[in-house]
Amino acid sequence: MGVRIRAAGEDDWELVVRLLDEAFQDDPVSGWVFPGEEYRRRTHPRLMAAFTDIVLAEGRIDVTADGTACALWVSVPAGGHPGAGQGDGAEDAVRLREAVDPANQRVERIARLAAAAHPADRAHEYLWMIGVTPSRQGEGLGGALIGHVLDRCDREGLPAYLEASSARSTRLYERLGFARTGTPLDLPDGGPRMWPMWREPRTAARP
């Protein structure tokens, strides 16, 4: 049986924020940005809310029909970057920190690193985040959500890009046709590594 997928709207805001918060509470990058379990529990949802706001405004959020998984996508034009829609990546990073956790420089630091590594020479689809409720992880929901957009990328001849935040997720993305690209992002102060990954379309664009 296939996974039913629909586009999220403003009414799904709380659902998406909750899914992302639950899915990334134990993620290595989230642990670096918000060290300490209690601090992360209180503050991490603000970052997920900010991401949800940006992508609802600029991109597309897909959710499974049963509300157990979601994927955040932004269409990035050649020469562009995903962000708050104004200024450059550095300015977006400052605004993100001020909105989420003003005293936490790591929020801004990771946003700057991701913006600097983001490919800018070709239009592409950017998988900002994907979250699956912990009790349903490993069931193929994430792969189905990603494949939903990759099918369109293949039809339209569009590449896709993402940053993997763990070795486990990297293996999933590799099975879907992504390959590591550029230089890994090593977060400072003993932080984890992130892997930029790029996927070429598997079919040419139709004339």
Results as ranks from 00 to 15, higher is better:
1 M>Q: 09
1 M>V: 13
3 V>R: 02
6 R>A: 13
11 D>F: 01
14 E>L: 14
17 V>C: 02
23 A>T: 12
23 A>N: 11
27 D>G: 07
29 V>S: 07
29 V>L: 11
32 W>L: 09
33 V>Q: 12
35 P>I: 06
37 E>N: 06
39 Y>L: 13
40 R>D: 11
40 R>W: 03
41 R>W: 07
41 R>H: 12
41 R>Y: 05
45 P>H: 05
45 P>D: 08
46 R>L: 09
47 L>P: 02
49 A>Q: 10
52 T>A: 09
55 V>L: 00
58 E>D: 13
63 V>A: 07
63 V>H: 01
64 T>M: 02
65 A>S: 14
65 A>H: 05
66 D>K: 00
72 L>V: 09
76 V>E: 03
79 G>H: 10
82 P>Y: 07
82 P>A: 15
84 A>L: 13
87 G>S: 08
89 G>S: 06
89 G>W: 04
93 A>N: 04
95 R>E: 12
95 R>H: 08
97 R>T: 06
97 R>A: 06
99 A>K: 13
101 D>H: 14
101 D>C: 09
102 P>T: 02
102 P>Q: 02
104 N>D: 09
106 R>E: 08
108 E>L: 02
113 L>I: 07
116 A>S: 08
117 A>N: 09
119 P>K: 10
124 H>S: 06
127 L>F: 03
129 M>C: 03
135 S>V: 10
136 R>D: 01
136 R>W: 12
137 Q>F: 05
138 G>K: 08
140 G>T: 12
141 L>S: 05
142 G>M: 01
144 A>S: 14
145 L>G: 10
146 I>V: 15
150 L>P: 10
152 R>W: 11
153 C>R: 05
154 D>W: 09
156 E>L: 11
156 E>D: 15
157 G>P: 03
158 L>E: 10
160 A>G: 10
163 E>Y: 00
163 E>I: 06
164 A>Y: 00
165 S>Q: 05
168 R>S: 05
172 L>Q: 02
177 G>Y: 13
182 G>S: 07
183 T>L: 06
183 T>K: 09
183 T>V: 15
189 D>N: 13
190 G>K: 07
192 P>V: 06
193 R>K: 14
196 P>W: 10
201 P>S: 04
202 R>E: 13
203 T>I: 04
203 T>E: 15
205 A>E: 14
207 P>C: 04
